[in-house]
Nucleic acid binder design. Structure first.
Lengths: 129, 129
DNA sequence: TTGTTATTGATATTCATTATCAATAACACT
DNA sequence: AGTGTTATTGATAATGAATATCAATAACAA
């Protein structure tokens, strides 16, 4: 009984916008982009759609050091990021070793439904000089 | 020239309170505890002290899934956490393998001043059943 | 003791995210 | 196609963590 989900063009729009955006985006940024493309979608709806996408596993999120929640399309494969704290560039990195290590450690302690956060921050080559 | 740091009882108080608190605490929680112990310290000062402790490497922080920044005493050695999303218990884990991997990946991409976030979330043994 | 100035604390402000609620539209069923 | 139910939307108010402001205070070098 029950909470049957409905399909709306708004949800599709957010999904598309998220797929278009390479790398991480904030809800506010997505909302801005959508409006710039002529959409009349509301900010609250963008937040709701993103929350749903995360719970469906179609997107993942992380907290920026400015306190914003950033979202990213996750329909492809699982990977992690190398993020420049100065210019914001993000590089996707494979992390099979870290993956394996994380799930091993979790299992050793009897944890289930394990997820993890593995992100590396620093200054990229260009910003280092 | 300048910016000479000064020692104050407020900074000590925050440091002590943080050491007392086992596990992660928010700035607001620390402030509350301090006031309950009769301190007249201000909330803004607690935030400032915590920020300084983090930059000195005496504390580390992570974002709760409710969007709060949580702090933890880190005067011992570097380590990471296994966190139960249900009951909040945190288990310290050694992560030498992950450490090495993280700095190796970062260097390969020319990154400097590298820090990382490695946290594992899930349901602990007790909360899993 | 004194002068300089980093620090404090009360509070206003910022800003991301959530709650509210009337209006709208998805969709199951005729 | 028409209709009723109700999930969803969107404008906006509300929440709440974190930061900025600024006069008053206190650390500390001389």
């Amino acid at each position: 009984m029950s909470t049957a989900k409905r399909n709306t063009w708004q949800k599709d729009a957010v999904m598309h916008a998220l797929t278009e955006a390479k790398g991480f985006v904030s809800a506010q940024q997505l909302h801005l982009v959508l409006k710039q493309h002529g959409s009349t979608i509301g900010l609250a709806t963008v937040y709701r759609a993103l929350t749903e996408l995360v719970s469906l596993g179609k997107a993942d999120s992380l907290q920026s050091n400015e306190g914003e929640t950033l979202y990213r399309d996750c329909s492809t494969h699982h990977h992690h990021h190398l993020i420049c704290e100065n210019c914001g560039v993000t590089i996707e990195i494979e992390a099979e070793a870290a993956e394996a290590w994380a799930s091993k450690v979790a299992k050793e302690h009897g944890f289930t439904q394990v997820t993890h956060t593995i992100d590396i921050f620093g200054l990229c080559k260009a910003c280092s000089k």
